[in-house]
């Protein structure tokens, strides 16, 4: 079950403020880093939604993101559609892909589910890697950002785009939190806890799982369109399974099933990667060690562990 506790609200606000301040007062590259964090955080919230609350640990979230980015690029650059319509098509494509994966894998669980999602993700990757019309492995450029000049907003300004992305991150968080608090969210958590019981209660668990994946796909799709607009460039690396693995790492690092943890995880991973790679090319080893440490120290993740201590402390206060 998901609760938007005061601690979570405070952490969320603190994280968003940190990102906003870092982007406002940092150098050019600080803004790049902030957007990288935001995109990863949206993906991680999207994964936490289905993995942390629905038990569906997917390795195809990168593919969901990439599909949205590619359809956005295909419609707007290759077919000359409007940007909003293209973004709609991109999101729809991600939702349909994610929904199909969710529907087909509804009976599969555990490591088999991980492998099945990996298979679907890699199929999508292979298709875009080989699709010459969309640039194949070279990728394609020419993406544009939304034109909001009617509202006096120029997204081509780096700082404004960063705040726009922050807004999307907040939107994704609020949407997920609302959905998880609804009856749908309770059913999803119920399936995670005991699928058999939910079926006995007459709930069509396959439908719930499909819907959860589809919603997750929508959020991953938003990350994809943001990524395409940010770099003006997309390539098949967006879809490859190791990226999905990185997203999973972020969720675990921050705290699975906490929704705000993934944002903390994304901040930590990206900052760690950049600060270590400034000194050595062997940054994988640190990421690996941190991951091992995160799991061995209880598996709650940074935010999860903090929350656990906090709750223990509060209980001690009341007793």
């Amino acid at each position: 079950m998901f609760y938007q506790s005061p601690l979570r609200t405070i952490t969320l606000i603190a994280a968003l403020c940190f990102l906003a301040i870092y982007a406002s007062f940092g150098s050019y590259f600080a803004r790049e880093i902030v957007i990288e964090i935001i995109i990863l955080a949206i993906l991680a919230i999207s994964l936490d939604f289905c993995a942390g609350f629905g038990g569906m640990v997917s390795l195809c979230h990168g593919a969901m993101m990439g599909i949205a980015a590619y359809f956005y690029g295909m419609m707007s650059v290759k077919l000359g559609w409007g940007l909003t319509a293209s973004a709609g098509i991109g999101l729809a494509a991600a939702v349909i892909f994610a929904g199909c994966v969710g529907w087909v894998t509804a009976r599969i669980s555990g490591i088999f589910f991980i492998m099945a999602t990996l298979a679907f993700g890699q199929m999508a990757y292979t298709i875009f890697f080989r699709w010459r019309w969309l640039g194949g492995d070279d990728g394609m450029g020419g993406m544009r950002r939304f034109d909001l000049s009617a509202w006096g907003v120029n997204l081509n300004d780096g700082l404004i785009f960063t705040f726009w992305a922050l807004g999307i991150l907040l939107l994704v968080y609020i949407l997920s939190a609302l959905l998880l608090r609804s009856g749908f969210g309770r059913s999803l958590s119920g399936i995670h806890a005991n699928e058999g019981r939910m079926q006995a209660l007459g709930i069509n668990t396959a439908t719930i799982r499909t819907q959860a994946m589809a919603f997750s796909g929508l959020m991953a799709g938003l990350a994809g369109i943001l990524a395409a607009q940010h770099t003006f460039y997309i390539s098949p690396e967006l879809l490859v399974w190791t990226l999905s693995g990185e997203v999973l790492l972020v969720v675990i690092l921050g705290g699975i099933g906490t929704l705000v943890g993934p944002i903390i995880g994304a901040i930590l991973l990206v900052l760690m990667k950049h600060s270590i790679s400034a000194y050595t090319d062997y940054w994988h080893i640190f990421v690996g060690l941190v991951l091992i440490f995160a799991v061995l120290s209880g598996g709650r993740g940074i935010f999860g562990q903090g929350e656990y201590w906090w709750q223990k402390y509060m209980r001690g206060q009341h007793a």
Binding site: E32, E36, D138, G139, A227, T231, F232, Y233, I234, S235, E237, L238
Partner: peptide, 9 residues
């Protein structure tokens, strides 16, 4: 790395 988007960034 070998990633066009990262190279561009």
């Amino acid at each position: 790395e070998i990633k066009p988007a990262i190279g561009l960034a």
